Computed example of a mutant assay.
Amino acid sequence: MSISFKYLEEDGKRLADYGWTIPGDLTPLEVHNLANANDRAEVDLFFEQHYAHDINLFKMCNSIYSAEIYSNWRKLIDECIFCFRSEKYLVAIPSLISIIDGALAQIGGTSGIRIKGLCLEQAQKQTGGSVKYYFWLSVYNFISNLFSKSDFNDPKPQFLNRNWILHGRSVAEWEKTDCLRLMQTLDTLVTATKSRGIRSYLEKWKEDSKLIER
């Protein structure tokens, strides 16, 4: 692992605490600045404005829809995108979570895979300073929150929680930003599993890491 990228581990953890993964279309400097934002509302606002630009939203949606790892859910993804554009966020949220769940289980190659452990295992498999390490670690940090254990008798979790949502325990009051969180996670997972086209990320990240460490 490149020493110059070590700060990205902490940045990814902070972003996950704000409810986001590291997106592949931001520079490391932008990621670093976001991770050091004042609060979650500031980060949420950034991504809302980022995806308010049609080109950014199109790139993310196209990346998810065309990804081979989601081929089993392509029709569902198409309907999720339709719901998002139609502002039917409540319908899309459970479906997006099920796609994340299913895709990670498929990558693990077994229906009994422990999802969080899989993400960490995939991160640790990356060698030679691979930038994919940071994307996998980012997914791991986000999934750790999304899949965290929470007793149904306890107060509702502050963060999106897979069990509460898919088991019908959570009041359906999710918003556009929550939908974007999950869609971005799917897109980050695409970047983490890419076999080609990752070199451009690495070169850009090397350039930005020098700026951050000055």
Results as ranks from 00 to 15, higher is better:
I143Q: 11
S209L: 05
S148T: 04
A105E: 11
S2C: 07
N62A: 03
L189A: 02
I77D: 05
E87D: 10
L202T: 10
H32E: 14
T191K: 11
S195Q: 14
T185C: 12
G108D: 11
G168L: 15
S170G: 12
A105S: 12
G108I: 14
L166G: 06
A16Y: 02
S66W: 12
S144N: 10
L189Q: 00
A123L: 07
S144A: 10
D151W: 08
L137E: 14
E79C: 06
K116H: 15
E175L: 06
H167T: 10
G112K: 14
L8Q: 11
Y133G: 08
W174Q: 15
V131I: 15
P94C: 04
L8V: 07
G168M: 13
A103Y: 14
L186Y: 04
A16W: 01
W164E: 11
I3W: 00
M60K: 06
I115Y: 06
V131N: 12
R114K: 14
K132L: 05
H50G: 00
L15W: 05
S63C: 04
I93G: 00
E79N: 07
L180M: 07
L182N: 11
L146E: 00
D151A: 08
E48C: 04
I55W: 03
W164H: 09
R40H: 09
Y70V: 01
G117W: 06
Q126R: 13
K88T: 04
E175P: 14
N36G: 11
S86D: 08
S66Q: 12
S111P: 13
S150Y: 01
L96E: 13
Y51I: 00
D78Q: 10
K210P: 01
G197W: 05
R162E: 06
E42V: 14
S71R: 03
G112L: 13
L137W: 15
F82D: 08
I113E: 09
Y201N: 02
N38Q: 08
E79I: 11
Q158P: 12
Q184M: 11
T193P: 00
K156S: 09
L211E: 08
T21P: 11
Y65E: 12
E79D: 07
E30S: 14
K176L: 07
S95Y: 10
D187S: 13
I69V: 07
N56P: 00
A192W: 04
N161R: 02
N161W: 00
A105M: 15
W174R: 15
E213R: 08
G197D: 04
C61M: 05
N56G: 00
I99Q: 02
L45I: 06
K206P: 04
I69K: 13
Y201W: 06
Q184H: 09
L34N: 01
E68P: 02
E42M: 05
L90V: 15
P94M: 03
K176Q: 13
I3R: 04
Q122C: 12
L166C: 10
K13D: 08
R214Y: 02
I143F: 15
Y51M: 01
D25N: 15
T177H: 09
E213Q: 09
T21Y: 08
S63N: 10
S195A: 10
C83H: 05
S111Y: 14
